[in-house]
Amino acid sequence: MMIFVWPDLLYVSFGMFFFIFLFFVYKNKEQIKTIWVKKDVKNVLKKITISQIVLGGAFFCSVLFLLASFLAPYYLSVYPLEMSLSSNMASSINGLMSPFIAIAAAILTFMAFWVQYNANQRMIDEDRKQQIERQFYEMLKIHNDNVKSFHVERSIPIRLSFREYEPTQLKNLYADGQSYLQIILLEFNYVYEKIKEVMPGEKEKWFSISYDIFYNGAEYTHKLNKINDDTLHFFQSCRNCIWQFSEYEKFTVMGDDIFRGHVAQLNSYYRHLFLIVKTIVRIDDKIMNYSEKRQFLRIVRAQLTSVEQVLLFYNWKSECGWKWEQDIKDGSENHFFTDYRMIHNINPDDCIAFSKQELLDEMNKKNKDYKYEGSSYKDDPLFELF
């Protein structure tokens, strides 16, 4: 009769454990490679979820109890057990192994429920993500409608000849959407150059006063005592004569509205654009990770021309839109210009008030350790056209 003692099963158990270990290594070979080659343990640990820890621990415990069930008859029996026809031996084995197998089965059942729970959570997250996508595209449509709503129209008299008795003819001028935004940026550029000429001081002061005139109007800026009577009179007089000069003919369509401010048109435009970006950024990372958020915001930025991005930067720099990018020392999560590159495609030629380096310095001053995609900052620069 062949003798088969229980210590022999120890080798079988360790063999099973070894094959399970090899399977684990195969399934996680990329993470192990990252740790072994790149020594990037911290990055790998960040990717480990609570669910993986729970399932891994439960699986390990179940395997441990299964191994214990094989060893129990040998270590817990009073007498050495050998394979024989004795029914008492079979009952002993059954009694010693059953508790461990039952515990392992309970753990595996828990794992099954846990996997099902996570699957349900993923379905809920996917539904939430689809709702966000629908809301995003609806908001994007409203943004485009806001741009199209920019509109100005003017009729000016033009003389058909130099003879005084000849009648004049009305010429209709029209600007909307992107052409309107281009004209008001030219208006800011004109104001900025004139302020530099008539006022002593530094660039920050020139910009602040220029943007106040551009955004709130010359009269409002005068009430704040930021410009004197002569400067106010200059801008008021321009409304009646600026269209006569060919170099400023693009302003003609603005008529008497020039230098009266654009807060009424731009305020709702900026608020809605901010709401779109904030909605995407505030999504739980479990539903949408950083790269996915960046992808959605690239779609938003694709709707913005360089002119719009320059105007957006000016709005932030003037502190009217200070929430776009806040100091990192304040613990704020609003880093939409640095972390999410909302002014990534600024053309330096459109931004006459600040140089390339000044733009970079402004952003680095607010958030030097900004987020990026790829392996380094060079793979994902703050500005594309620099």
Rank of each mutant, 00 (worst) to 15 (best):
V281S: 00
S92V: 08
V44E: 04
N28I: 06
M254N: 04
R122Y: 09
Q169T: 11
L170A: 13
K141W: 08
S13A: 10
N28P: 09
R301H: 06
Y75K: 07
D339I: 09
G217I: 05
P157S: 14
E308R: 03
L170P: 05
R301K: 12
S69M: 02
Q130W: 08
N118I: 12
V12S: 07
S149A: 08
W36Y: 13
F100D: 05
R282N: 12
Y190W: 11
K47Q: 11
G321Y: 01
A106W: 13
F113L: 09
P167C: 02
L22M: 10
G374S: 00
K196Y: 08
R260D: 12
R154T: 09
A119W: 13
R341E: 01
M288H: 00
L186I: 14
E319V: 15
G331E: 01
E133W: 00
P73W: 01
L160W: 03
E193P: 04
F235H: 07
K356G: 12
L382D: 00
F150A: 02
Q265F: 06
I352K: 05
E153N: 06
C238K: 13
Y190V: 09
Y215M: 08
F386R: 05
M139K: 13
L224A: 13
N189A: 13
D176T: 11
Y248H: 13
S155M: 14
I107Y: 03
K317M: 07
P73F: 00
L81P: 07
V78M: 11
H272I: 02
F337H: 03
N118M: 14
T221S: 09
K27N: 09
Y79L: 15
L186C: 10
G255A: 14
K278E: 08
E333D: 07
S268V: 05
S91L: 13
S155N: 12
K278N: 08
T49S: 06
E166T: 09
E187Y: 05
P99C: 04
K38T: 09
P200T: 11
M16P: 00
N144R: 09
A104V: 14
Q31L: 12
H143R: 05
K226D: 13
F214M: 09
A102G: 12
M111Y: 03
D361S: 11
D229W: 14
Q31G: 12
N120R: 10
K29H: 11
E193G: 07
I346K: 07
F150S: 00
G217E: 06
L173R: 01
P167L: 04
